[in-house]
Computed example of a mutant assay.
Amino acid sequence: MDVILKKLEDVDWNNAQQTLDQQGYAIVENVLNADDCQEFIEGFENPERYRKNVDMERYRFGKGHYKYFKYPLPDILSKLREHVYPKLVPVANQWMRNLKLDINFPASLSELHKKCVVNGQLLATPLILKYTKEGFNTLHQDLYGDVYFPIQAVLFLNKVEKDYTGGEFVMTQQVPRAQSKAIVLRPKKGSMLIFTTNYRPLLGKKGHYRVTMKHGVSEVHSGERYTLGVIFHDATT
């Protein structure tokens, strides 16, 4: 079996699903090895891989650069996206039921992409992000169109405190009529963080209610920070 597929098959997905449902995020360690991480980092400067390069400061998204891959995606990224998506569908659909929303996500990534095509969303959304000293990413949501999957992932390509300092992954959880809760994470190199794209249910005294989630990156103090963003739905631009 392919190495990346073997690693993903060995994941305790029941535990990951439960953690994701309870917390809004879950961390799976050792998804990428050191060679995988280095290959993506070295490929950052290869323009043949990408369809779009974004200077975050220009658009007031933060300070850093990110590049959207074009189809066909690198093999590891494609396999990871196709294999992880169906593991997340049960959580996504349960969230929709909890919130009494008439939304049902298909079992396969290819079926989700058919829905994207109908809505004019044809472009790849996986991306690689680079931050240097003083780089950061403002709080945001990765939606890209009317068709969007409520869960996404990010993979960490270098080692915090060795390759960079600062640069924590930050999420905020906005409970209605209350202050936001901040969640700050520092996953290990090669880890995959699975998290909420836009909103998720929380159980209250009167049933489930919706909480809005956003994510970003705190300021990098030194070094270079690289990550891979894995969004499952496609984009219009």
Rank of each mutant, 00 (worst) to 15 (best):
S218A: 12
G167I: 00
V3Q: 12
K67Q: 12
L112I: 14
P187S: 05
F44G: 01
L88N: 05
E29R: 03
L139Q: 01
L77C: 03
H233T: 06
N158V: 06
T19Y: 04
P47M: 01
E57S: 14
I231F: 07
A34I: 13
V211W: 13
V154A: 06
N104R: 14
D146K: 04
D36L: 08
E39G: 13
E224F: 08
T165A: 11
P74N: 09
C37Q: 05
L32W: 04
G64L: 02
N119Y: 13
N46V: 10
E161C: 08
E39I: 10
A26F: 03
Q179K: 02
V175E: 09
D35L: 10
L143T: 04
I128M: 05
V230S: 04
A107G: 11
V31N: 07
F44L: 09
E48R: 15
G229E: 02
F40A: 00
A26Y: 02
L109V: 09
H215N: 08
N104S: 13
G223F: 06
L228I: 07
N104G: 10
K114A: 15
L8D: 07
Q23K: 13
G190M: 02
K67V: 03
R58H: 15
N137P: 07
L193Q: 01
F136M: 07
P72K: 09
P72V: 01
N137C: 04
M1L: 06
R225Q: 10
Q18T: 13
A16E: 14
S78L: 07
T132E: 01
N14M: 14
N198M: 09
P201Y: 07
I103Q: 11
G223K: 02
I27H: 05
S108D: 11
V230D: 02
R51M: 02
E39T: 14
V84A: 12
L155R: 02
T196M: 04
H65W: 07
T19E: 11
I194N: 05
D35M: 10
K67Y: 07
S222K: 06
W95S: 01
N53L: 13
V147M: 14
Y131F: 11
V31L: 11
A153L: 06
L155V: 10
E57H: 15
